[in-house]
């Protein structure tokens, strides 16, 4: 009895919170037929938003992997002054509201900020363009890879690396043949989570993008814009694209869990 009640509750919760909204997106997007949906998603402004979103994700991804690996390695393997501070710093993007983060970036890197102001005379503008969007996306997503890779590095310990060292391997060989294979799946997993977040990020990006139509609109911003324009079909059609991108990351995640069950089992 208890078991059935619990299952029923879980199903109900999933239906109300997840299935119904996603179904609603689809039904609204296709309410005026596939033709109207196609017209909406092939709108140049929407396509531009899709491209900007994908471009941002593609720029942020390698930087996240690089930074995440370096930070996790440094924290796991070395004791240095500021190590604990770095651990806390990496968590900050999780704790700070994205919109506050966006405002902070504007304050520092905007035309009237200390950094942005200094670059202004050289014609370098950081905010209200792709650079600004990439910067805040990096801020929002930088914890993911570290948080996935660090515990694996800490569990696998240093013994394998020391063994490789005594066997004559150099630093690069140790990293390439011992460390990296041990964290590969955590790395891929963290990168997927970070990418999903970068694609869906709204708050921080909305502050620094400047919302120039057809230029600095990412997909989430474009959806809000269309919705506020009372273009419901357009908004929901664009939302199907964002949902599709999100589902794609879910499928990738599932594939990893299938190939490598031990990692997927971790929360």
């Amino acid at each position: 009895m208890l078991r059935r009640t619990l299952i029923a509750l879980a199903v109900l919760f999933a239906a109300v919170v997840i299935v119904l909204p996603v179904a609603a997106i689809l039904s609204r997007a296709f309410a005026e037929g596939v033709g109207a949906w196609w017209a909406a998603v092939s709108d140049p402004e929407t396509l531009q938003a899709v491209w900007l979103t994908v471009l941002t994700a593609l720029i942020v991804l390698p930087l996240n992997i690089l930074f995440g690996l370096c930070a996790a390695w440094a924290i796991a393997r070395f004791r240095f002054p500021g190590r604990r501070a770095l651990l806390i710093l990496i968590e900050i993007p999780f704790a700070v509201s994205p919109i506050v983060a966006g405002l902070c970036f504007l304050l520092v890197y905007g035309a009237y900020g200390p950094v942005g102001g200094a670059l202004q005379p050289y014609g370098l503008q950081l905010m209200f363009n792709l650079t600004g969007i990439v910067m805040v996306s990096l801020f929002v997503t930088c914890p993911f890879v570290v948080r996935e890779v660090l515990p694996v590095l800490q569990v696998t310990g240093e013994d394998e690396e020391k063994a490789a060292l005594t066997l004559g391997a150099n630093g690069w060989q140790i990293f390439r043949h011992v460390t990296l294979p041990n964290v590969t799946w955590a790395l891929v997993y963290g990168a997927i989570l970070a990418t999903a977040r970068a694609i869906g990020e709204f708050g921080a990006v909305s502050v620094v993008s400047g919302a120039i139509r057809g230029q600095t609109m990412t997909l989430p911003l474009q959806i809000e814009l269309l919705y506020n324009d009372y273009n419901t079909t357009g908004a929901f059609a664009a939302a199907t694209l964002l949902t599709a991108l999100a589902l794609l990351t879910l499928v990738l995640r599932g594939a990893i869990t299938a190939i490598h069950p031990a990692h997927g089992a971790r929360p």
Binding site: T156, G157, D159, E160, K162, A163, A164, L165, T166, L167, G168, A169, N170, H177, V178, P181, N182
Partner: peptide, 19 residues
């Protein structure tokens, strides 16, 4: 450096490369 000494070491945990 350790690698240049050519001393073979067996660790308490064996430290075999698991992959």
């Amino acid at each position: 450096p350790a690698g240049a000494r050519r001393f073979g070491m067996v660790f308490q945990s064996y430290a075999l490369f698991r992959h």
